[in-house]
Write a protein that binds this DNA or RNA. Structure first.
Length: 685
DNA sequence: GATCCTCGAGTTCT
DNA sequence: CTCGAGGATC
């Protein structure tokens, strides 16, 4: 980017464009009543894209420009959720103490004193399926949508209509004009087993697990296939509604939904206090395997809806609910070998190759062992039988070994002395946990990773330059440094395996397009040790252009916020290296460029030296936009309130930060106050 | 000097 | 997601 910070007008414009486009999306996709022509829509979209390209800091996760790619892959129409489909925060403690922790937070947030009566909660099951929103208009099922990213999901109405237990009409004489019912589509165990038995009979492949099968069935392009999958549904909440007054409690809501003919699981209970929640958790866990469907835990909610509103949200998670999961499923398997991988920085990571084992809904064959100390701590050896699970139900993890089953003569793991890729010495610095290959860019593994990093999405964003291609380019001697990329011709690429003329041309075009970049991306792409995305942005903003950064002394680097002695030295050493300077020259000669900006050390600007904290939701300014505005004025935006905070900007649903600010006597303003402040300060400068 | 928080880096499977 | 390291804070 332009290290030039966006002007307040640009920030404002981006925010307006996002809201407008989101509105058009909704009218087009959900209401089917677009109010602008396609051409008008396109022009707004392109304007936002251009602004975001110039100032990547303006890009928000929910920007309409970010949807493409994430959602365009399928053939389902996007559906914008008027009320976002949020996820529930997961309690990390999988013992019954997790219930206690939730209660403590709720009582604190509600400001209840020690002697106050127990809070009324509802405890429900957490179904292992696929979240769906069912929109009923005048009592008829109008739209069914997946969660997607929470803001925009996919229109799967035709498929969902084939699910027998979901009513097409609500069983009430007086249905609300609009009501969205949210719940989970799942497949019962018995139905899943029967389906697989049928697959066997037909000589077809078996399905892996009920959850993925349900998710896959809902997203079939042909509803006839969905209809043949035995799907079911349980409701647990509401999205948008209009012309409807919900009951006073979640329990009342579940009863009302059930009375309308919507399936609601009956294993919920209204309880008081944390001990009863823990009791529910233990009781359900004991019955878990006997339930006719899969669950991965239970959910606790504050029962009264008015208290839910009072508690509000932290970022995108409701503060009045928590998912309390059961401990992850574990399985036992054998370590076939312990190998090592070489990362971009030369970090040597030991990996356990495992006999394939099915656990937590997937077959695990590899698991990272992190580093030497970790292996020693757990005493894992080749040939050992180990207990594995998927941490957070995703990343495979070796929990412990089964010592009784250790084969005779199993030897402890020894870190190899030489890098398996380049033969250079492997060294481990005093006090560091990781061992590193000392080969630097001599090491083909490090060169590959450096190239992949350079091309990655948040760096130069070169589409199509994946690991297969990079490997071939390096092995074939076509590319030694990142600067060589810009010399590649379509013919060079078309000569490689699995590379047609068309894709070769695409990759060359993508490389060419990456020439126009931003300073922050460029700095990040260089792959300086300890300099990630955030630090690269700080450096770009502080120095404005590459030249001053390249000649910066340690002392000058230390002036950059969040840069300490270690980073300063790493950055200076990088630019002192002749080879690195040569690569940078090569990149500049190849035409890589960006718009230089004005150096803006934090010491400049009207609000310089002041620390702001944002809390709650502002009426019209997105959080990132407010942050960008403040930073453009020279202020620091911090995440939490402390004595050093100058001022807190509070919006709707502000929480503990606001309380703390009041306790410390710190000035609190709202969005209007912020605008006045920025406008007022602007005149002085 | 201890502690909290953020950032960086590495990783799995579908 | 998770760990470790570095920076900032108390």
């Amino acid at each position: 980017m332009a290290a030039r910070a966006p002007t307040p007008a640009e920030i404002e414009r981006a925010s307006v464009l996002r809201r407008e486009l989101a509105g058009h999306d909704y009218r087009y996709y959900v209401l089917d009543q677009p109010t602008v022509s396609d051409a008008e829509y396109d022009s707004l979209f392109r304007e936002l894209e251009a602004l975001e390209r110039e100032h990547p800091g303006l890009v928000t996760a929910d920007s309409p420009t970010q949807r493409v790619g994430g959602h365009a892959r399928t053939e389902f129409a996007p559906v914008r959720h008027r009320v976002p489909m949020l996820s529930i925060r997961t309690e990390t403690d999988t013992t019954i103490a997790g219930a206690q922790a939730f209660d403590v937070r709720i009582r604190r947030d509600l400001g209840l004193l020690d002697g106050a009566p127990a809070v009324e909660y509802i405890a429900e099951l957490k179904f292992d399926g696929l979240a769906i929103s069912l929109r009923y208009e005048a009592g008829r099922l109008a739209v069914a949508a997946t969660r997607g990213d929470g803001e925009v999901g996919e229109d799967v109405t035709r498929n969902v209509r084939t699910i027998a237990t979901i009513p097409h009409r609500l069983a009430t004489r007086t249905p609300p004009p609009v009501i969205e019912v949210r719940g989970e589509v799942y497949m019962a165990r018995a139905d899943f087993d029967a389906l697989n038995a049928e697959q066997d009979r037909q000589g077809e492949k078996r399905f892996i697990n009920p959850r993925n099968t349900a998710a896959g069935a809902v997203r079939q392009l042909d509803p006839a296939i969905t209809a043949r999958r035995p799907l079911r549904f349980f409701a647990y909440g509401l999205g948008e509604f209009d012309g409807y007054t919900p009951p006073a409690t979640q329990a009342g809501l579940l009863q009302e939904l059930a009375s309308w003919g919507i399936p609601v699981n009956e294993d919920w209970r209204v309880v008081h206090g944390p001990a009863a929640l823990a009791e529910f958790y233990a009781a359900i866990e004991a019955r878990r395997d006997a339930l006719p469907f899969g669950i991965d835990g239970v959910v606790y909610k504050v029962n009264r809806l008015d208290l839910q509103d009072l508690l509000g949200f932290v970022t995108r998670e409701p503060r009045w609910a928590v998912a309390h999961k059961f401990p992850a499923e574990e399985a036992t398997t054998q370590v076939l070998a312990i190998e090592v991988q070489v990362g971009r920085t030369g970090a040597i990571t030991p990996i356990a190759r495992l006999a394939p084992v099915f656990v937590g809904g997937a077959t695990i064959t590899n698991a990272t062992l992190h580093n030497e100390d970790e292996i020693r701590r757990k005493d894992i050896r080749t040939g050992d039988w180990v207990v594995v699970r998927r941490a957070g139900d995703v990343i495979p993890e070796v929990v412990r070994t089964v010592p009784e089953r250790r084969p005779a003569g199993a030897k402890p793991f020894a870190m190899p002395a030489r890098c398996p890729e380049c033969g250079s010495a492997i060294v481990r610095e005093e006090g560091e946990a990781v061992a590193r290959c000392s080969g630097g860019l001599v090491c083909p593994a490090q060169r590959r990773q450096a190239l992949l990093h350079f091309a990655s999405r948040h760096a130069m964003d070169i589409d199509g330059l994946g690991d297969r291609l990079v490997e071939q380019l390096i092995a074939g001697g076509k590319v030694a440094t990142v600067a060589d990329l810009y010399r590649l011709t379509p013919e060079d690429l078309a000569a490689l395996e699995r590379m047609g003329e068309k894709s070769a041309a695409n990759v060359v075009a993508a490389i060419g397009a990456s020439r126009n970049t931003t300073l922050a991306r460029f700095i990040f792409a260089l792959g300086i040790r300890h300099v990630g995305e955030a630090t690269a942005r700080d450096l770009a903003r502080h120095f404005g252009d590459l030249a001053p950064l390249q000649r910066a002394t340690i002392d000058e680097l230390l002036e950059v916020p969040d840069v300490g002695p270690v980073l300063a030295e790493s950055i200076r050493d990088f630019f002192a290296e002749a080879h690195n300077r040569e690569v940078i020259r090569g990149l500049l000669r190849a035409g890589v460029r960006w718009t230089p900006g004005t150096p803006s050390p934090r010491t400049a600007g009207a609000l310089a030296g002041q620390t702001f904290v944002l809390t709650g939701t502002l009426p019209t300014l997105a959080r990132d936009a407010a942050k960008a505005l403040l930073e453009a004025a020279g202020a620091t935006v911090a995440g939490s309130v402390s004595k050093k905070t100058t001022c807190v900007v509070a919006g709707a649903d502000a929480g503990s930060k606001l309380e703390r600010a009041r306790a410390l006597g710190i000035r609190v303003i709202d969005e209007n106050g912020l605008r006045a402040l920025l406008a007022g300060e602007g005149e002085h400068t």
